[in-house]
Simulated scan of single mutants.
Amino acid sequence: MNAVHSEKAPRAIGPYSQAVATEHLVFVSGQLGINPATGEFAGADIKAQATQSMENIKAILHAAGLGMHHIVKTTILLKSLEDFAVVNEIYGSYFKEPYPARATFQVAKLPKDGLVEIEAIAQKK
């Protein structure tokens, strides 16, 4: 197992790696909508945070030599399911068929009081 790190994604805010790679898979830790240049949320709204979360995943996968098309499974954690439609539209713009498997949950609270956190599993090809 090897850690994956990208300067184009926010540093981990705890004792974990941005991602870890095994022989066949890359596990991307949950990404908040934090802009890596500022260390702050990309914006106060769900659109800005969801877009930044996806961009962070994209940057981490790029550091592993992969792209978004390598993702096989994602999990989306939302502060409010009322934001589902907006997040779904942004999320969908990053993928083509066949889409990754996905689960979406509303949670009581996210780190740093974020609005969305997305994690991904990608397959090396």
Results as ranks from 00 to 15, higher is better:
K47M: 02
G30Y: 01
K112W: 00
L115M: 08
K8E: 12
I71V: 15
G39A: 04
I90W: 01
K96W: 00
V87C: 11
I118D: 06
T22K: 11
V86N: 13
D113N: 15
L25I: 05
E23I: 00
E40Y: 13
N88Y: 02
E23F: 01
E7Q: 14
V107R: 11
K125S: 11
G65E: 07
L110E: 06
Q31Y: 03
M1V: 07
M68Q: 13
F95H: 13
L78K: 12
P100V: 01
N2R: 14
A44E: 14
T38G: 09
A103W: 00
M68W: 02
E89S: 13
K73G: 01
Y99W: 05
T51P: 01
A37H: 09
A48L: 02
Y94M: 11
K58I: 04
I13A: 06
S53W: 03
V4E: 11
A37R: 15
A63F: 03
K112A: 06
A64V: 01
A120W: 02
Y94T: 12
K124D: 03
I90Y: 02
H62W: 01
A64G: 10
G39P: 11
H70F: 00
F105P: 08
L25P: 00
Q31E: 12
T75D: 10
Q123N: 02
P10Q: 03
A21H: 00
K8P: 01
T75H: 10
I76H: 06
P100I: 00
H24M: 05
T51Y: 07
A64P: 04
T104S: 12
Q106I: 02
R102T: 03
